[in-house]
């Protein structure tokens, strides 16, 4: 565990807390893509199947359970909670996310570390996580205006990915045998998807104005 990895995990946790806070405080999920949240729930459920087979550390197990529970809680809020559900605009959230699931699974069947159940689901979760933010980014671009908390949620999520890249560079330099191409290449693709968002986020921050994405 290095400082980049820890900072990455913490910003990831922070992004989820910001999202839960937004939903809890405003009793609304406007601007939040249910499809992205469902994809994250699938990502965590598929990746942390090893909860039952491998023990790495208390920290690792605890965080896995937090990520699974929080992602399911968010999906539950948007789908079931009567007030939150009402604020969900499904006409804006039209990304065909099942295509991402199908493509990621197909890719995992061909590109994986080992042909085992756990490894295929691990690779699937890595590929799906790389593209899971797409419905959210498309929704934000469509609606144009981004409220503060939703903007911060995406910002922290992007920061988490950036820090994980620094973590891999650090590990590559300090651990001679660190070469895990599936995670690293997917991670770079995932981070690149945030580039556009970050550009507008920093412009609005610099000008001290509301975050607006061009249509």
């Amino acid at each position: 565990m290095n400082i980049f990895r820890l900072a990455g995990d913490m910003t990831h946790l922070l992004s989820i807390l910001v999202l839960l806070l937004k939903i809890y405080a405003t009793k609304s999920c406007s601007g939040v893509s249910r499809k992205t949240q469902e994809l994250y729930a699938i990502v965590f459920l598929a990746r942390y199947l090893d909860l039952f087979t491998d023990f790495i550390s208390v920290y690792n197990t605890f965080m896995k359970i937090v990520f699974i529970a929080s992602s399911l809680a968010i999906v539950w809020c948007i789908r079931v909670h009567p007030m939150v559900k009402r604020s969900y605009d499904k006409d804006l959230d039209t990304f065909r996310h099942y295509l991402l699931v199908a493509a990621s699974f197909l890719l995992a069947l061909f590109l994986h570390e080992k042909f085992t159940f756990l490894e295929i689901f691990w690779a699937f979760s890595i590929y799906l996580e790389a593209v899971a933010i797409l419905p959210q980014l498309v929704l934000l671009q469509r609606s144009g205006n981004v409220d503060n908390l939703t903007g911060q949620y995406v910002f922290f999520l992007g920061a988490y990915r950036g820090l994980y890249i620094l973590n891999w560079i650090y590990r590559y330099l300090t651990e001679p045998r660190f070469t895990r191409w599936i995670a690293c290449v997917s991670g770079v693709v995932q981070t690149a998807l945030y580039a556009d968002f970050f550009y507008y986020y920093f412009i609005s921050w610099k000008n001290n104005s509301k975050l607006k994405l061009p249509a």
Binding site: N60, F67, A183
Partner: peptide, 10 residues
Amino acid sequence: TNKDDVHDEL
């Protein structure tokens, strides 16, 4: 855990 393992990451 293996030094070259990313499975310890979240």
